[in-house]
Design a protein around this nucleic acid. Sequence first.
DNA 1: GCATTTTTGCAATATTGTTGCAAAAATATA
DNA 2: TATATTTTTGCAACAATATTGCAAAAATGC
Lengths: 144, 144
Amino acid sequence: MEIPPINMSEYNDLLKKNGLSVTESRKKILDLFFESDGALAHADIEKNTDAAFDRVTVYRTLQTFVEKGIIHQIPTTDNSVLYALCKHNCEQGHHHDNHVHFICTHCDKTFCLDDVTVPEVKLPAGFSPSQKAMVVTGFCKECR
Amino acid sequence: MEIPPINMSEYNDLLKKNGLSVTESRKKILDLFFESDGALAHADIEKNTDAAFDRVTVYRTLQTFVEKGIIHQIPTTDNSVLYALCKHNCEQGHHHDNHVHFICTHCDKTFCLDDVTVPEVKLPAGFSPSQKAMVVTGFCKECR
DNA sequence: GCATTTTTGCAATATTGTTGCAAAAATATA
DNA sequence: TATATTTTTGCAACAATATTGCAAAAATGC
């Protein structure tokens, strides 16, 4: 059974469904995520909103979205935090151990490869896995 | 052909081999890594050296060690940077796409599972991978 | 439309990381 | 071993990033 992707015009529903008030900042930030085909950093969001919202608001909005499972964080080796939409509107606490993230070393965009599942690995005795994440870097489809 | 693990008493050799001067800070930080069975963050190192060294020195030492391939960075979802020893003293620029990292959600330690190789994944058309990293979270062998 | 709840923005503060430069330490050389 | 050269350190200043409390503003529920 396919879960349909979120319709871009339904920001209000998405917010209300998660018990959140509908505000300008939240709608605008949601919009940025839906427009972007990659992942966004806090800085990207500030840049693209012309500082219309306070930095604190952006931080809190991202945090709220993560808590509600609207966006998720992507692991990186530098100390930047990247966020990306949960394409299939996963439930709260969904931890995205199921798809691979791709970071392009040329354009620096990050992609959620929703259709690529993270393969199983056999761990040494005593280790009990609960989640797993995989990050691949290289050249993306536009930069190759 | 097995590459033997580094002998803990040979910090000097390890540093010199990499063209680095042997200093107190470098020896102490190396020691912390060899003592630790997990990965370390910058903060861990500051804590365990009683602020004997300047923050800047710690930053620069870590950076140097990464450049020389003595330690490597581990991707995380929060914005912390973790470092771990390259157990098999890999050459410069080695990017550690070959083993899995395990983060324990109970004791917060991070382990390099040197013997667990990152499996291959098939990417969508157009994506050219160069490196890949995998992070598994759960309970480690001591906390299960 | 009004009371209640939620969210925002400001200010202040904390944390984290970077750079230039002179002093100190380590290494190389005589 | 003493000295010259190179490397590394620590300080100071700064920059970027993130967090908290609280009053004002906005959104929601009735």
